[in-house]
Design a binder for these strands. Structure first.
Lengths: 350, 350
DNA sequence: CTTAGCACTCATATTCTACGAGTGCTAAAG
DNA sequence: CTTTAGCACTCGTAGAATATGAGTGCTAAG
């Protein structure tokens, strides 16, 4: 069932020409581009074979051929050259990532934006904890008399704070006490456990103290929820419109709407867990209906010990896979290098 | 120069019909809708007058009339009914804003999203400090042996933190000392002043200590820069595509690209300062070229004592001004009520 | 197995035509 | 002086008809 060398060269020429031109490829074009010294008629015969085997498709009887999903798959798996990035491009990526002390979210957003610019396709990003996130420690800081700052640090070294107002003020010993309770009873717990512990505590604690505790714990629970959740973000959606398959608004709108719904639960196959760190989904291989005519190239990377991120490029099935995979893998590697295990904390400065 | 009552009714009918249908309005349609008991011929005469006075335009000799920028202006200023929001809509807005303890940025993002959904147009948001932001206090918290958390609170009650790693560890007295230096020398200073103070300090401080100080101060400076900057964010860009004027991609792309460039310096007339809290810019009244055929309705609101935000709706000149202004002003009022002076801090929970 | 030749298909571009909504003008009516 | 009916004229749009040409599959010869 293996294809002859000549068939492969023809298929490759067709895929690449179609990627470049977005128009069905005819035998003549292939004859020139494939570098084979045979006539168009021979190529027509080969193309007929490839069509029969399911690697090519004909939009209608007499237009050229277009790669099928299977054709793209074969191309991606076997035929595609690995592209090299230009110095400029690597420079650009490094610049984007070497921002001094941005937060995790920001760097990821920025990475998405740059990837979108250098790939000419929309990009999505996601990040989520691999396991249950817990609180590592609480700190409380008095501010003036009517408020204190609660600082919560998670075991993935993310630190969040919140200003909490208290009408009746709080003495220093009271604050110490509160801090002691929080650190002894709520450290190391996940979201659900925190809620249970809080419930148990309600009956055997003074109402005033309990109210304060629950204010801080509720904040901590939100931090944990936020960390555990997969945050779906996108960048560069307008790049879609540059590609002819989305020149018709009927085609463009559903996909754009799909990509615009940021923050919602992930509607992509969760490759967060799969071991592979590069994944290509071609057209119908996608689960979501909105992506049926769309290809997704995605890569995952590590954030600290406990989180994993995904960054992916979305485009028509006729996507420039060689270009995109090269850029994407460089990106994912850089991100892993930046956020990965070596560094104790995501916010660490290079 | 005042228009007769009948002319006003005709103009109003034309604007509203055009807003609803996006197609040039003929004398016949006006006759039915304006509720005047006159024939189409009379209306044609009146329409000819209005055209001459610049309130209407003719796309070509014999199509109906379309309102000019001046026509919209008159409509907005005098003719437009103030729409009422339905109970559902106010409910939806309140839900969006009453999120428990989100950060300022998040609430604003969310507000933009909801406003976009209920108005069917893209929405942008901006927020910036009115005056120089300064640091109100520094707090340092030791974490394990090799890192500490720097907590910076600004005079606009925004609190940010960052994990700072120190290879050689730090004793408790040293941390106290560092905190004392920061709080005595850098509180109350703006970004530039901080830089100057830091420079002065370099010569007369031990290098090790100076390095630590500058790490924290640089973080503080970034926080201030971030607060002072106008952050331009958008939501619901895809709504553009629903309106016929952007069915042609040539029209849609530039505007979409313009709106997609988040985070860049503001390219809208800075109504942050103007006293008025609702502002309508119609077509050519816009400065930016990308907005020449676009109307912008924007409202501003207060955030704490020292910041001001703008939230605006972008759409074709044929925008449903009545609908948009009603929703927008409710939104801006709610935001002011939420973030405004009464509450000491933006993050305050309702 | 390869290639030249040829009839056939079918999407796209082009041209032409018919249609009709809407206008402006004129002249009669109120 | 204002309103209205009548009518010729404009011009963008839709639809039909036609031409074009790239590409195919098949056959038969090299």
């Amino acid at each position: 069932m293996a294809l002859s060398d000549r068939k492969k060269r023809i298929l490759r020429a067709i895929v690449e020409t179609y990627i470049a031109t977005a128009e069905p490829v005819g035998s003549k074009a292939v004859a020139q581009l494939a570098g084979l010294d045979v006539s168009t008629a021979t190529i027509r015969n080969e193309m007929a074979d490839l069509t029969e085997q399911g690697y090519l498709e004909q939009p209608h009887t007499s237009a050229g051929r277009v790669p099928s999903a299977a054709g793209y798959r074969l191309y991606v798996n076997e035929l595609m050259d690995r592209q090299q990035l230009t110095l400029q491009e690597t420079q650009r990526i490094n610049d984007a990532l070497n921002l001094k002390m941005e937060e995790l979210d920001r760097v990821i957003d920025r990475a998405g934006k740059v990837l979108s610019q250098i790939s000419d396709y929309p990009v999505f990003t996601m990040a989520a904890a691999k396991e249950q996130v817990t609180v590592k420690r609480f700190d409380l800081l008095m501010v003036e008399d009517s408020a204190f700052i609660a600082v919560v640090m998670t075991d993935s070294s993310v630190v969040k704070n919140k200003l909490i107002h208290i009408p009746n003020g709080l003495s220093d010993p009271q604050l110490q006490m509160l801090s002691a309770v929080l650190n002894s009873s709520f450290v190391g717990l996940g979201r659900e456990e925190m809620e249970q512990t809080l419930d148990k505590m309600e009956t055997r604690t003074a109402p005033g103290a309990f109210e304060l505790i629950s204010l801080v714990v509720e904040f901590a629970m939100e931090v944990l929820a936020d960390q555990g959740q997969q945050k779906f973000r996108t960048a560069g959606i307008t790049h879609l419109l540059e590609h002819p398959e989305y020149h018709s608004l009927d085609k463009a709108k559903p996909l754009m709407a799909y990509l615009s719904e940021e923050g919602d639960p992930p509607r992509l196959p969760a490759t967060l867990d799969t071991g592979k760190n590069m994944n290509i989904l071609i057209g119908p291989e996608n689960v979501s209906d909105a992506l049926k005519d769309t290809s997704v190239v995605m890569a995952s990377y590590d954030i600290g010990d406990n989180m994993r991120g995904v960054i992916g490029v979305v485009g028509p099935t006729r996507m420039d896979y060689a270009k995109v995979t090269a850029r994407l893998s460089y990106f994912a590697d850089s991100l892993t290098r930046m956020f990965g295990k070596e560094l104790p904390a995501p916010e660490e400065q290079e």
